[in-house]
Amino acid sequence: MTDSTLTPRPSQLDKAAFVAAYGEIYEHSPWVAELAWERGLDPRHDTPAGLAEAMGRILAEADPERQLAVIRAHPDLAGKAALAGTLTDDSTREQAGAGLDQCSPEELAHFERLNGAYKAKFGFPFVMAVKGSDRFAILDAFEARLENTPEQERHTAIEQINRIALFRLQARLAG
């Protein structure tokens, strides 16, 4: 995919319009978009990659408590919110794209057990940029990441959230 310019150009928007357009790129965390705008945007930020880099830097540089709040804003993969149909539109598309809406009852039970074990160990939900993955790869990643330390896992979750943001910005361009 080429890294074409987002329309309207993020660097040309006022704060309210920018936050309205990009405030939900980070799940229920419009403050990321607000701070990105406040730091200043220029034509380098008018592409999905450029804007994702600027917004990702905001999250990466945030204090651990703010990072944890963003991580905790994410739903469980194949969890109760997905089953109840209460995910954001972006999360619904992402989970369905990875086949999580097609899990067998046994697979759903496996996800439920892993979600519980992960939250018990880390205090936040497992976050993974699932685009290009399937439920089997996600389950493998889940089990592997349960071996991480809390600090390693917080950093991994932030990296995954920034990948999700890039994918969401690319999807908006394609849409």
Rank of each mutant, 00 (worst) to 15 (best):
A16C: 01
A16I: 08
A17W: 00
A17S: 04
A17Y: 05
A17P: 03
F18Y: 05
F18R: 03
F18W: 03
F18Q: 01
V19Q: 03
V19C: 01
A20S: 09
A20V: 03
A21I: 00
A21H: 00
A21L: 06
Y22D: 02
Y22M: 00
Y22I: 00
G23M: 01
G23P: 03
G23N: 04
G23C: 03
G23W: 02
E24F: 02
E24K: 06
E24V: 01
Y26V: 11
Y26G: 08
E27K: 01
E27S: 07
E27P: 06
E27Q: 12
H28P: 02
H28C: 04
H28L: 03
S29I: 02
S29P: 06
S29D: 06
P30Q: 10
P30K: 10
W31F: 15
W31H: 08
V32G: 09
V32L: 14
V32T: 11
A33P: 12
A33N: 11
A33I: 11
A33W: 10
E34P: 15
E34T: 15
L35E: 15
L35N: 15
A36W: 12
A36R: 12
W37K: 12
W37D: 12
W37P: 10
W37A: 13
E38R: 14
E38N: 14
E38Q: 15
E38S: 15
R39T: 12
R39E: 15
R39K: 15
R39N: 15
R39C: 14
G40V: 14
L41T: 09
L41R: 07
L41W: 08
L41F: 09
L41P: 07
D42A: 09
D42Y: 01
D42E: 08
D42T: 10
D42H: 07
D42V: 05
P43I: 05
R44F: 10
R44Q: 14
H45M: 08
H45F: 07
H45P: 04
H45G: 07
H45A: 07
H45L: 05
D46P: 08
D46Q: 07
D46F: 11
T47K: 04
T47E: 01
P48Y: 04
P48D: 02
A49T: 12
A49W: 00
A49D: 11
A49Y: 06
A49Q: 13
A49C: 14
G50A: 02
G50I: 07
L51A: 09
L51G: 06
L51C: 07
L51D: 07
A52R: 04
A52F: 04
E53K: 08
E53C: 07
A54N: 07
M55V: 03
M55W: 02
M55R: 02
G56M: 06
R57A: 14
I58G: 00
I58F: 02
L59G: 02
L59E: 00
A60R: 13
A60I: 01
A60K: 09
A60L: 06
A60C: 06
E61I: 06
A62I: 08
A62F: 04
A62S: 14
A62D: 11
D63W: 05
D63C: 05
D63E: 13
D63H: 09
P64S: 14
P64Q: 14
P64G: 15
E65H: 10
E65I: 13
E65N: 08
E65V: 13
R66S: 11
R66H: 09
R66W: 04
Q67I: 05
Q67R: 13
Q67V: 11
Q67A: 09
Q67F: 10
Q67M: 12
